[in-house]
């Protein structure tokens, strides 16, 4: 791997996205190795401050993934997450963090292939802002 490894944190809800990532593993779907997963009970537990903490500690990117809207294991935790994280996303530029470094999405327990795609795309996206910054 020519590129420098990135530090990407993924906050995944236990019921959908973590299980979806497990599914990708069971199907041996290869993906970039820059992402480290932190298991959460629900995306509703993801405090925007925790995301900022990750950036403060030097994360190149942060990914949050939960159950699809309507499918939350806890009824509507992901709706709270969506509201909070949407606000956070809009605030990032003001804090000097490129918005491309943050992404939240929904991956269900049966979507191993989709999870792999999300990781690939997000890693690539973070890679490209990071190398863009280096070039400056």
């Amino acid at each position: 791997m020519a590129e420098q490894n990135l530090k990407i944190i993924g906050f995944l809800c236990n019921w959908c996205s973590y299980a979806g990532a497990d599914m990708a593993g069971m199907a041996r779907m290869k993906q970039p190795a820059d992402l480290r997963v932190v298991r959460m009970p629900c995306t509703g537990r993801v405090n925007p401050l925790l995301v900022l903490k990750a950036f403060q500690e030097g994360a190149d990117g942060v990914l949050v993934s939960g159950c699809h809207p309507g499918d939350c294991h806890y009824t509507d935790g992901n709706y709270y997450a969506r509201r909070r994280l949407e606000l956070l996303a809009r605030m990032l530029p003001a804090l000097g963090i490129e918005p491309e470094r943050f992404h939240y999405t929904w991956v269900s327990a049966s979507e191993g292939a989709r999870w792999t795609q999300v990781v690939e795309e997000f890693t690539e996206q973070v890679q490209s802002v990071s190398s863009g910054r280096e070039a400056e």
């Binding site: 791997m1 490894n5 990532a21 497990d22 990708a24 593993g25 069971m26 041996r28 779907m29 290869k30 993906q31 190795a33 480290r36 997963v37 298991r39 792999t116």
Partner: peptide, 23 residues
């Protein structure tokens, strides 16, 4: 989780080992 989230989705031993240590 160093199986579903690591050994099964990576092929490069060095990379996977580093990730496992992080985890």
């Amino acid at each position: 989780n160093i199986r579903e989230h690591c050994s099964w989705i990576h092929s490069d031993m060095e990379e996977a080992t580093l990730k496992a240590i992080d985890l």
